[in-house]
């Protein structure tokens, strides 16, 4: 029975149905299902499937956003109940934003939503974010990762400046840096000394996970 509930949870996320996801989350709590288990065995597999569908080209922005919304509505209900086991549930804390001089927002918003849907705590600073604001927010929140988006070949230089600035402040070891945006690449990430690159929202989640894994070991 619980197995059926879990697969219905996953389906509500794949279908991008926030109401259904919320009602399943509530049903789980009423039925005495462990909240942490509902998240990990029910909803998380759903968002993983969404990531796969996105990468195969089956899903596009609207589907991705709807699924992230569904995930959000379920998490809003289950998170507080799972608070006891919270530490284990949280993948990590991420500060994210589009760099100074760049007002492009949509791609970054997607990554932000997908990270949140995948269990990261996300502090989204918006677009045209000063480099110092990234660092300030990361320090305050004790973030694990700083995600920096740049959509123009001219503004991607600010990603390099962020890495340099972290080095200057002696903070390079404290935060991982993940870069993304249309003109960027794995090669660019390596060139500027960033820790990772996400070609799209799903890849960014994978990269963020990998960075957290590395940190734990």
């Amino acid at each position: 029975m619980t197995i059926e509930l879990f697969s219905a949870m996953a389906k509500s996320v794949v279908d991008g149905d926030p109401d259904k996801a919320a009602s399943l989350a509530r049903a789980a709590l009423v039925g005495g299902v462990n909240a942490a288990e509902a998240i990990e065995k029910g909803f998380i597999p759903g968002i993983h499937e969404v990531g796969a569908l996105w990468e195969s080209g089956e899903y596009f922005l609207p589907e991705l956003i709807a699924s992230a919304e569904a995930m959000k509505s379920a998490m809003a209900i289950l998170r507080p109940a799972a608070a006891g086991a919270g530490a284990a549930l949280k993948e990590g804390t991420v500060v994210i934003g589009t760099v100074e001089g760049d007002i492009h927002d949509i791609g970054k918003n997607l990554v932000s939503a997908m990270l949140a849907a995948n269990g990261f705590e996300v502090i989204d600073l918006g677009a045209d974010v000063k480099l110092s604001a990234f660092i300030e927010a990361a320090r305050k929140s004790g973030a694990d990762i700083i995600c920096v988006s740049a959509l123009l070949t001219t503004t991607m230089l600010n990603q390099r400046r962020l890495v340099d600035l972290l080095v200057e402040h002696g903070l390079r070891g404290r935060f991982k840096v993940l870069v993304g945006g249309a003109p960027t690449s794995q090669k660019w990430a390596e060139e500027i000394g960033a820790d990772g690159y996400g070609e799209n929202a799903a890849a960014a989640v994978r990269a963020a996970r990998a960075l957290m894994g590395k940190e734990r070991s």
Partner: peptide, 16 residues
């Protein structure tokens, strides 16, 4: 446009 609050939603709706 980018500063328009409804931008993202309008954009996503316009994809079809």
């Amino acid at each position: 446009l980018a500063r328009d609050e409804a931008f993202q939603q309008t954009f996503v709706e316009s994809l079809s």
